[in-house]
């Protein structure tokens, strides 16, 4: 029983271990008076040597990744300040906010190398991304198009609930990362 309690505190004060005896908290709440619901989503843009740009769906980009969620993986790899962003989640109540700040400090202290590692800028990430883009656009090489860079833009999108459905009312960019790509046999 004591182990259960210790694991519970570790989960919420540091990081969630796996396996652990926890269920997802879905701790975020929305306030009625706001009547606006906001959350963040990524947009992946591929820049080609021809100067054109293609929009890539995150689910297509990560379609080979199974057993886990695309947005979470995108946040983990292709964002500049994932940990910091979650800590300043303005939709959370103050108690959760404080807990998140405490958690961030604990993570920075215990896992300094992990929290500060910029994964999207590593060469292996760029190589994987270039290969993946060429797989998703198989005719690009024949057409003489080579991906030069990819940008991942994070947007805070606000939705409002009206009589006939859910409508997006605003979009604000919160983060962006750019990855320079090198494909086999070519230089960007």
């Amino acid at each position: 029983m004591l182990l259960f309690v210790a694991a519970f505190f570790f989960t919420f004060l540091v990081a969630e271990p796996y396996p652990s005896l926890t269920m997802p908290g879905f701790a975020r709440v929305y306030h009625v008076q706001d009547s606006v619901f906001s959350f963040e989503e990524p947009t992946v843009l591929v820049q080609w040597n021809s100067g054109s740009t293609s929009r890539l769906d995150q689910h297509d980009l990560l379609s080979t990744v199974r057993l886990t969620g695309a947005t979470a993986v995108m946040k983990n790899i292709f964002s500049s300040n994932h940990y910091r962003r979650t800590s300043v989640d303005t939709s959370s109540t103050s108690a959760i906010q404080q807990l998140k700040r405490l958690r961030l400090s604990a993570q920075e202290w215990l896992m300094a190398d992990r929290t500060r590692r910029v994964r999207y800028s590593e060469p292996s990430t760029a190589a994987w991304l270039a290969t993946r883009i060429l797989t998703l656009y198989p005719d690009s090489i024949k057409a003489g198009r080579i991906p030069v860079s990819a940008s991942v833009l994070w947007h805070q999108r606000e939705f409002v609930r009206r009589n006939n459905g859910i409508h997006m009312v605003s979009e604000r960019q919160t983060d962006s990362v750019r990855i320079m790509l090198t494909t086999r046999g070519s230089r960007p």
Binding site: Y18, M23, T68, G69, V73
Partner: peptide, 14 residues
């Protein structure tokens, strides 16, 4: 599953 969840997201199937 621990390896699969090393991508940054844990699904709660314990």
């Amino acid at each position: 599953y621990a390896i699969a969840y090393s991508l940054g997201k844990i699904n709660h199937n314990t």
